[in-house]
Amino acid sequence: MAMNNDFNEINLNDGDLNDTITFWDKLKNVFRGNSLWMLHYCTGCGAVELPPTMTSRFDMERIGMGPMATPRQADVLLITGYLSVKTLRRVIYTYEQMMEPKYVVGFGSCTLNGGIYYDSYATINKLDYYLPVDLYIAGCMPRPEAVMNGFKKLMDMIKKGEATGWKKYQRHYEDYYSPNQIRSLGEVYVKDEFHE
C-alpha cells in the first residue's frame, strides 16, 4: 500500500474545462442533466442504501434516474463505500468501459479519506487519486435523502457544465491518474481474448 506522500500532487484544475460554450453544448447538457443512468456496481456498505432510493419510498425515477445493467449503457458510476485494492482494478476497468461523458460519485467518508479503514493495508484511502470524482456525498453511510440530494446536485452541476471529471481524466491520465493507479496496483495487465 503506497503512502499518501508518494503521490504526485499537481493542480488538476488548471485550464478551463467548462464545456458550456456554444448553444449545442448547452442543449446537450440539458439532456444529460435530465437523464442519468447509474451503473449498479456495489462496493462496500453503501449498496444497501440504494434499493430504498430506487423503489417506492424515495423513487429515484422521478428525477430521471434509473439503474442500468452494464457499464456501456451507464452515465454515472457510484463508489458506495470502502474500496479494496483488488476491487479498484475492476472499478478502473469499469470506468474505462463507460461512454463519455461519464461521472463518478463517491459515497461516504471511506472514499474521501479512508474513513474507519484509514490504516487498512487492503483499502485505498483517497479515491480522487485514481478516478476523477465529480461529487462526494458525506455520511457513514448517507441516508437515501442525502443520496437523492446529492444526485440533484450532480444534475445541476451537469446542466451548468461543471461536472468535467471525464475531461480531467483524459487530460491528466499520463501525468497523474495512470502513475497513481500503477503505484497502488502494480502492473496492470489486460487480457483481451476477443481481439487476439
Binding site: F31, N34, S35, W37, T55, S56, E61, R62, G64
Partner: peptide, 13 residues
C-alpha cells in the same frame, strides 16, 4: 405507488 418520471422523460433519455 411511486411518483414516476416526468412524461417527457423518454425524449430526454
Amino acid at each position: 405507488r411511486r411518483v414516476g418520471p416526468r412524461w417527457y422523460q423518454t425524449f430526454m433519455d
